[in-house]
Amino acid sequence: MQTFLVILLIAAMLATVVALVRGIVIFLKTTEADLKGEGPSVSATRSNKMMQARILFQAIAVIIVVLLLMSTGRG
Rank of each mutant, 00 (worst) to 15 (best):
I60Y: 01
L35Q: 11
S71I: 14
Q2V: 06
F57T: 03
L8E: 11
M51G: 01
I26A: 04
G23P: 02
M51Q: 07
L28Q: 13
I26K: 06
V17H: 03
T72K: 10
I55Y: 09
I7L: 04
F27V: 00
T3L: 00
R54K: 15
F4P: 00
L56S: 03
E38K: 08
V66L: 15
T16A: 15
A33K: 05
K49P: 00
L5I: 01
A53M: 13
K29L: 13
E38G: 03
G39Y: 10
R22L: 07
I63T: 10
N48H: 14
V6E: 06
Q2C: 07
L5Q: 02
T16C: 12
I64H: 01
T30G: 02
L5T: 00
R46W: 13
L8W: 04
I7C: 03
I7M: 05
S71A: 12
A15L: 11
L14E: 03
L56D: 01
G23Y: 02
K29S: 14
M51V: 04
I64S: 00
M70E: 08
T3K: 07
T16H: 13
V66A: 11
S47W: 01
T45Q: 12
T45R: 12
M51K: 06
L68K: 02
I24H: 11
A33R: 04
A11F: 07
A61K: 04
I55T: 13
M1N: 08
M13V: 11
M51N: 05
M50A: 11
A11N: 05
S47C: 12
N48W: 15
G23L: 01
G37C: 05
E32K: 14
I10H: 05
A11C: 13
A61F: 13
V6A: 00
T72S: 11
A59W: 09
F4I: 05
E32A: 10
L35D: 11
M13G: 04
I60C: 04
V42Y: 07
Q58I: 06
A19F: 15
T30L: 13
V66F: 12
Q2H: 07
V42A: 09
I64T: 02
S47G: 09
